[in-house]
Design a protein around this nucleic acid. Structure first.
Length: 737
DNA sequence: TAGGTATTTATTTTT
DNA sequence: TAAATACCTA
């Protein structure tokens, strides 16, 4: 290997090995912070420059649009020319592209639309109602989950033999749902993948075309692939396809980290990594273990935690930098104390001249963000929460898109359901139900059904007029705006449909943001360039609608402001921050209660802990609360087992909020939480502050604090053996010493 | 059909 | 606890 090649010179030996390898199948096990994207990007550049490959022969697949965009950008930067000829995108984006190009072969109308999860749920709900099934017994969410799970496994209704009633019914719902989608020209996310897979499997001509084209297929985050994605890659690479000459197979490079597999619950199969080694010839495995992100202390702790998992492919992160600050471990009284401590620490960090945007607060579940948010608000620390409602998921935006979808495809029943009476135009439930029933009987779309009912004079005069007016509105809008630019078209649609007027007439701050979002949608249309989306063959409106469904639109709150980043551990994957707070690290929270029943799930939680810890560059702070309000009930919590799995010499335990108080007005720990309770109430319990008590399990301790009154009152005791605990007086059976 | 009340339920998320 | 949803009434 020519290590003097300019593309290799800046890489470490393992990275060089991966980037400069001959054309072959490859597995790159890339640990957190080991320069994974760098390797991927350099590898592609190397193939182009050194192996003289045509950019047309490269297919690079990611999971998120963000990752795809980043890859594209970095390759362009590296090779100094356009990446237009390469297929770089998400699984869903690429599948979509295939379906658009081959809509005839897969039996879709040219104007097919993508159904997002919200639309899909509505659709499933509708089906269940139409089938006269009890929604209690057959929750739409679960039916949807079932459908998606089956599709992710590559199964159609006829593949399923429903032995018991449950499976039979779910299968029937799946079947009816699919019929409805097909009729309306609607494709859900899982369907994109499944249809694209079936296209390649059933159509030899199409498959061979792409097989000939993509000599190199590179897949990022391979541990997150599901069954259908794996099968899709296999087809494209010609592996396991009967009549493909082994010499005609394509090279596949997969990059992933089994230790960062945290999406098993949504169908991801880590096993695909091992399966890859079995299915593909002569796979070169390279481990990237040198970490360029975190301190040695953090890596040591993370390594030791993840070592508790079984069946790992094996990997240990190391760094050239040694030392680093110890990991602070703060034991809070409760979640309020935890939040206050974090706020205090962030204030100190900020006072030392550090940026707030370099700080991340991570939590296991979204519900935990509230208390943390309040503490930030209280301390006047600006923050930004990841993962709220995305732009294209907003109600008003979806309303507007429904009109655009109907203009583009009249048979889009989901759009019809949404638009027909928003704003109210006198098409009530009764009328709509007639339209639905007729549509179902005649196997036609709602639009066609509505037309027929008017023609056959089935509807009464008023209803008929209302429906006709709606049909005319859509047809008129299409005629009027067909020559308009996308922005002007959308602007006209929003105004003429009455949507804008409807939201403008509503009062309150909420309505105002809705109006603003509608305006924002118009400028999104103005700025939209289908060229950027590699959908240049599509009519602009179609391309935009696909864009809206596939690119949720970043949750962007003032990105320019210097703010603390708050997010779940899951959404932190792939990110890094100089200072990271990992919060709520308690048994029952993290690992979550639900994950403690099934064996495999606990290991996934541990990987989540590993992901969380390895986000930190300079300093990691782990916090947990001994008492926490969960679903309105106070729970006593123990420290997470993951804390016990860390090397104790990497931890700096902080108890009783001593550090927290350094930045607050130094109120004594005692009495901080009992402002509401009177002393008499407390005395009624028979205990007083500072008194020595004995507990059956925890042994002897000193009464520190109390809270509440009557049978609900709680008492905090600092036990000699096990530290401070909150106990419900009524149940604790404390004895005076 | 809006709005009020009772009831239920409670990870993690991208596309 | 609180949010979402279902159910019901004016």
């Amino acid at each position: 290997m020519d290590t003097q090649h300019p593309l290799l010179a800046s890489l470490n030996p393992k990275q060089q090995q991966a980037v400069g390898a001959d054309e072959r199948n490859m597995l790159v096990l890339a640990g957190a912070g080991s320069g994974k994207t760098r390797v991927l990007v350099h590898r592609i550049a190397y193939l182009l420059q050194h192996e003289q490959l045509s950019p047309f022969s490269i297919l690079a697949v990611t999971f998120t649009n963000k990752a795809a965009a980043e890859m594209r950008g970095r390759i362009e930067q590296l090779i100094g020319s356009s990446t237009r000829a390469m297929w770089i995108g998400t699984f869903h984006g690429l599948a979509h592209r295939l379906l658009r190009a081959h809509y005839l072969e897969v039996g879709l109308p040219q104007s097919f639309q993508i159904l997002d999860s919200d639309d899909q749920l509505r659709m499933v709900k509708r089906i269940i109602k139409d089938m006269n099934l009890d929604e209690k017994r057959w929750p739409p969410k679960q039916a949807m989950w079932y459908i998606n799970a089956k599709k992710d496994e590559g199964l159609r209704p006829h593949h399923i033999d429903g032995y018991d009633l449950t499976e039979q019914t779910l299968k029937a719902i799946y079947d009816a749902y699919q019929v409805a989608c097909d009729r309306a020209g609607l494709v859900d996310f899982a369907e994109l993948l499944l249809r694209a897979y079936e296209l390649l499997r059933n159509n030899r001509f199409v498959r061979e075309h792409y097989q000939r084209r993509f000599r190199h297929i590179l897949v990022d985050e391979f541990q997150d692939t599901n069954a259908i994605q794996y099968a899709w890659i296999k087809l494209l690479s010609g592996v396991g396809v009967p009549d493909v000459d082994p010499a005609d197979r394509n090279y596949v490079t997969i990059v992933g980290d089994d230790d960062q597999s945290i999406y098993g619950w949504r169908g991801a199969r880590v096993e695909n990594i091992q399966q890859f080694i079995k299915d593909y010839d002569d796979v070169l495995t390279i481990r990237l273990e040198q970490n360029y992100r975190s301190t040695d202390v953090i890596l040591r702790a993370a390594n030791q935690v993840i070592a508790n998992n079984n069946d790992r492919l094996g990997k240990e992160l190391w760094t050239e930098a040694d030392g680093g600050e110890l990991i602070d471990l703060y034991t809070a009284f409760n979640e309020l104390d935890e939040a206050r401590y974090i706020a205090g620490q962030i204030e100190r960090w900020h006072e030392h001249g550090n940026a707030l945007q370099d700080v991340a607060i991570l939590y296991r579940s979204n519900a935990q963000s509230r208390v943390l948010e309040e503490a930030m608000l209280h301390a006047r620390i600006p923050y930004r929460i990841y993962g709220g409602l995305r732009f294209f998921d907003r109600q008003e935006v979806k309303d507007a898109l429904a009109y655009l979808r109907l203009i583009s495809n009249r048979d889009d029943d989901a759009a019809f359901e949404r638009a027909h009476n928003t704003p109210a135009r006198g098409i009530g439930n009764t009328t709509l139900q007639k339209i639905r029933d007729h549509a179902r009987n005649e196997q036609i779309s709602l639009w066609q059904s509505a037309k027929q009912l008017i023609q056959d004079k089935v509807l009464n005069g008023r209803a008929s007029n209302a429906v006709q007016a709606f049909l005319d509105l859509i047809t008129g809008l299409e005629d009027e705006t067909s020559e308009y630019s996308l922005g002007r078209q959308t602007d006209t649609v929003i105004k003429r449909s009455g949507l804008m007027a409807m939201y403008e007439s509503e009062k309150g701050e909420k309505a105002q943001t809705r109006v603003e979002n509608l305006k924002e949608l118009v400028s999104a249309c103005d700025n939209f360039d289908s060229f950027d989306d590699h959908e240049e063959d599509l009519p602009p409106l179609q391309a935009f609608l696909a864009h809206a469904a596939l690119e949720s639109g970043e949750t962007q709150a003032d990105q320019h402001q210097d703010a603390v980043q708050m997010m779940t551990l899951h959404s932190a994957k792939g990110l890094e921050f100089p200072l990271v707070f990992m919060t709520g690290v308690e048994e029952g929270m993290f690992p979550s209660q639900q994950s403690m029943d099934e064996a495999g799930r606990l290991e996934e939680e541990r990987r989540l802990a590993y992901v969380g810890m390895t986000r930190a560059m300079q300093k990691l702070v782990i916090t947990y609360a001994e008492q926490r309000r969960v679903y309105g009930q106070d729970m006593l919590h123990r420290a997470s087992r993951f804390i016990g799995e860390m090397p104790s010499d990497a931890l700096n335990p902080i108890r009783m909020g001593r550090v927290a108080r350094s930045s607050e007005n130094s109120q004594p720990a005692m009495g901080r939480f009992h402002s509401g309770a009177s002393h008499e109430t407390f005395q009624q319990t028979g205990f007083s502050l500072g008194q020595r008590v004995r507990h059956v399990k925890f042994g002897e301790g000193t009464v520190l604090n109390y809270e509440g009154s009557g049978p609900q009152s709680r008492i905090q005791v600092n036990f000699d053996e096990v530290g401070a605990k909150w106990l419900v007086v009524a149940y604790a059976r404390l004895e005076r010493c």
